[in-house]
Nucleic acid binder design. Structure first.
Length: 839
RNA sequence: GGGCGCGUAGCUCAGGGGUAGAGCACUCGCCUUACAAGCGAGUGGCCGCAGGUUCGAAACCUGCCGCGCCCACCA
């Protein structure tokens, strides 16, 4: 039995101050949130917690969504489940890479050997970054993020997250690198991972390929240039926003049904400036009402170009290189003379120069027409993406395979979404995939692709015969480790080997958080108890990345969903309803809020954000939460200060039974709400009852409860029962104040006490008794208020009429209203009260 | 262009075929032995617009308007 009574110790002046420090320490010392790994899977509730990025600071948006998860975790813990609630720190990826570079003045150079004695420069020179090996870089990352992670952990503890800190992981640590590489090697062995040389979306600043999931559109100013191509019969005019790609033009394309161009299909025209012959072709994707209805196909201006190029089997004339500049030499078949003007120029200046040249040659028809249009960017990038042909690793995700796509859509339907409509976003995304998942990145910091390539006699890598390490050797770094069967001095030599230089996309690691945290292939006993998880909580904007990629990995590796349910939280918006984010500079620092209002108050505000719904930041709600927490302290002090309840005390009075019956309904509603992840509704129902409990019931029974005898005992017993239930109903949202009050009169933690059930409450109460008596009291108060009298004013006579009056608890109403002569008259009408105040 | 969500009091939002709700704000009262960081009472609404279903619609259906988000092959 968890709920053991003890002699109450009630502070004379209860306060919220200091509760966080006190209980954070007590919970830690008592291991209240420690996962019990002896419990079988059916008794476990496992949560695949999002690992926050540690390259910055947490803001109120984090507190918001993590509080939601914590409330759910606490509910299930009280329901008797062993809650597996780990925390991870995401220290893998570009944000950390940049921070380590700037902080230590180093850069990652995977070709360098590991230096175990390396110490970063005391005074980093930002202009001359010191090259270090990947392993050294990772060690520096771990050193730098350690400070942040301490701060994060402290904040999370203060927020009251019931995380088991013994289950901590990081996304660049050994465990994560091993899991990422192991999963990749298995994908490779099953043919789900493959290498391919193909046109790829490319960020010229970071000089890496990026995946479809990392794109975003941004409105950019541009201009339509109307260009004249030269035909045998007549000129052909096309409109383009990218005249600098003229040397990359391989064809013109129009819709097959377009009368204006039908006669040109199968003929050729010559490009302006360069005079290159290009065919005029037909394709259904050409849109007659765009521009002049005929477009130039370049290799490559956008993804439609790639489609046309592939489906129409056109030649390749690539001009843009990895650095975003036009190549030094013209593509095959393009005369060097005119091209020399453009070689080495950036896209921007090449555009200017081509426009000038076209103007001079008379092939620019009219002046460029300014427009704005959406352009694809890497979400972390600052320049538009280009399309560059490169060799990359892919994992199949249904983007090129209808069968796999159908399986993944079925997984989406199998998943229990909260709120349900979020599934549409998943389906939207899966149905819109236009290629497999590109996982290789041409960066230096991250989890290395764990393969080597044999070099032929000419020293060229044989990409189709990758050498893989045994799983027992993981994690490996192919840039410093030597593949099986080779020696270190064969690196880079003909007949030797070369390590794959790339690292994996950060999502290739994050998509394995269930496996990483759960001990996959590392602690199979643990994994069997937590996987598949019960819950993935996350924000709705990363359904296409984190959620989807995690589903893909689990489907491929385990043939199952990674979790039963996904709970999507909304964003925090600033008061102007803009998304709150660091880059917008509108971030509110959570630690100040927690200090000023207390953690429970901030959690209360967070819990008022419904699942999936964006919520404006509002200190008003926080203040209400603080008021609620203080009210809980005071009401509890009153209830527990009323004196002893005899062991055999029974709840006998109809008003007391009515209150408990109403509470019983609240227990049902709150429980059902929490089962559906609707912590907001659970809180709202509990809170509404609690205020009525304070305002009406407490006032009505106060006088009786102060007295002696069975009626007083009934009131005290009912009050204590209600308090016990209410504290437990509030505990998931307000863990500090509920634990404080619980400690006044109970042993153990409220957070491991059993969630209230209706069977605890006596049957047979009629909630209408409380409703009618409360309504009558309100009307008495109204009369006093209108008379501008004190609530203590004596009433010499009151007559209550109405349909429900016989349910009214007469002595309680008389005492609470200070009514000397109270008459109840049954009448078929709404309840009214005539009040005569004493002179 | 496709999809999803949202339009209810000044603000933030609940409700979801049967009398229009809460908190905040505002107004007026009250030192009341749990709480003045409190308590009591009150003012305030074409429930986005237009049709339809129904005895009855804020709710259900259709269309439209507005806002937000997600997605899209945006020359």
């Amino acid at each position: 039995m968890t709920e053991q009574p003890r002699t109450p110790h009630i502070p004379s002046k209860p306060s919220l101050d200091g509760l966080e420090d006190k209980w954070v320490r007590a919970w830690d010392d008592g291991g209240v949130y420690r996962f019990d790994r002896t419990r079988p899977r059916g008794e476990v509730y496992s949560i695949d917690t999002p690992p926050p990025t540690v390259s910055g600071s947490l803001h109120v948006g984090h507190v918001f969504s993590y509080t939601h998860t914590d409330a759910v975790a606490r509910f299930h813990r009280m329901r008797g489940r062993a809650v597996f609630y780990p925390m991870g720190w995401d220290d893998n990826g570009l944000p950390t890479e940049r921070r380590v570079q700037n902080h230590f003045g180093v850069r990652c150079d995977p070709s360098l050997p590991y230096d175990p004695d390396f110490e970063p420069p005391a005074k980093p020179d930002p202009k001359r970054q010191l090259p270090v090996s990947r392993r050294n870089f990772i060690e520096l990352c771990e050193r730098l993020t350690e400070v942040d992670e301490k701060a994060f952990e402290e904040l999370w503890r203060r927020v009251g997250l019931s995380v088991d800190w013994g289950q901590l992981y990081t996304t660049i640590g050994d465990v994560s690198r091993t899991a990422s590489q192991r999963a990749f090697l298995r994908n490779l062995a099953r043919g789900e991972a493959y290498v391919s040389e193909a046109p790829t979306l490319w960020d010229v600043t970071f000089r890496t390929a990026v995946a479809q999931a990392e794109l975003e559109d941004r409105e950019q100013p541009g201009a339509f240039y109307r260009l004249r191509f030269h035909g045998d019969e007549r000129p052909v005019y096309i409109e383009t926003t990218r005249p600098e790609l003229l040397p990359a033009c391989v064809a013109l394309v129009a819709h097959p049904d377009d009368e204006r161009y039908r006669e040109l299909f199968g003929t050729t025209v010559r490009t302006p400036l360069f005079g290159v012959e290009v065919p005029v072709v037909a394709h259904r994707l050409a849109e007659p009402d765009k521009g002049s209805g005929i477009a130039m196909i370049c290799t490559f201006g956008d993804v439609t170009d790639v489609t046309w190029w592939r489906e129409l089997d056109l030649p390749t004339r690539a001009v843009i290189g990895w650095d975003g500049r036009l190549a030094a030499d013209p593509p095959p078949g393009v005369p060097a003379g005119p091209y020399a003007e453009l070689a080495g120029k950036t896209v921007f200046s090449a555009k200017e120069r081509v426009a000038e040249l076209l103007r001079e040659s008379g092939d620019l028809d009219g002046e460029p027409r300014k427009i704005t249009r959406p352009v694809k960017f890497y979400e972390k990038g600052s320049k538009p993406l280009e399309i560059v042909t490169t060799r990359q690793w892919y994992i199949r995700n249904g983007g090129r395979d209808a069968g796999l796509r159908a399986e993944l859509l079925a997984r989406g339907r199998e998943l229990d979404w909260h709120p349900g409509y979020m599934r549409a976003r998943y389906e939207n995304w899966v149905e819109g995939l236009n290629g497999d998942w590109l996982i290789s990145r041409q960066r230096f910091f991250g989890v290395p692709i764990p393969v080597w390539y044999p070099l032929d006699e000419a020293g060229e890598p044989r990409y189709d015969e990758p050498i893989t390490p045994p799983e027992s050797a993981l994690p490996v770094d192919p840039s410093s480790d030597v593949p099986p069967g080779f020696t270190a001095d064969q690196r880079g030599r003909p007949g030797g080997f070369a390590g794959d230089p790339d690292v994996m996309d950060t999502w290739a690691t994050s998509s394995l958080t269930p496996q990483i945290a759960g001990g996959w292939e590392r602690d199979e006993d643990l994994f069997g108890r937590v996987f598949p998880y019960d819950l993935r909580p996350q924000a709705h904007d990363i359904i296409r990345t984190w959620l989807f990629s995690t589903v893909v990995r689990a489907h491929l590796e385990h043939g199952t969903l990674p979790w039963k349910a996904a709970a999507l939280s909304g964003w925090i918006l600033d008061p102007d309803r803009k998304k709150m984010s660091k880059s917008k500079g509108n971030v509110v620092t959570p630690i100040d809020l927690l200090r000023e209002y207390g953690s429970d108050a901030v959690r209360y505000w967070a819990a008022n954000g419904r699942p999936g719904t964006d919520t404006a930041f509002d200190t008003g709600q926080i203040k209400i939460g603080r008021r609620l927490a203080i009210k809980i302290l005071n009401a509890s002090k009153f209830v527990l200060g009323l004196g002893e309840v005899q062991r055999e005390a029974a709840v006998t009075e109809p008003l007391d039974k009515a209150m408990l019956a109403a509470l019983s309904n609240v227990v049902r509603e709150a429980t059902e709400a929490f089962e559906g992840y609707d912590y907001t509704r659970a809180l709202e129902r509990t809170e509404r009852f609690f205020w009525e409990f304070c305002d009406d019931y407490l006032e009505l029974v106060k006088t009786r409860a102060y007295g002696d005898g069975p009626q007083a005992q009934s009131a005290r017993a009912a009050l204590r029962t209600a308090l016990s239930v209410l504290l437990r109903l509030f505990a998931p949202i307000l863990p500090f104040v509920t634990e404080e009050v619980w400690s006044w009169w109970r042993r153990g933690s409220v957070h491991t006490a059993p969630w209230p059930v209706r069977a605890e409450l006596p049957p047979g109460g009629d909630p209408a008794v409380l409703a009618a008596t409360g309504e009558a009291l309100r009307q008495v108060r109204k009369a006093k208020s209108e008379a501008r009298a004190s609530m203590r004013a004596d009433v010499s006579r009151a007559v209550v009429r109405g349909a429900e009056v016989l349910r009214i608890s007469r002595p309680d109403l008389a005492a609470a209203g200070r009514i000397a002569d109270l008459t109840l008259e049954d009448a078929p009408a709404d309840l009214t009260v005539d009040v005569v105040l004493a002179p």
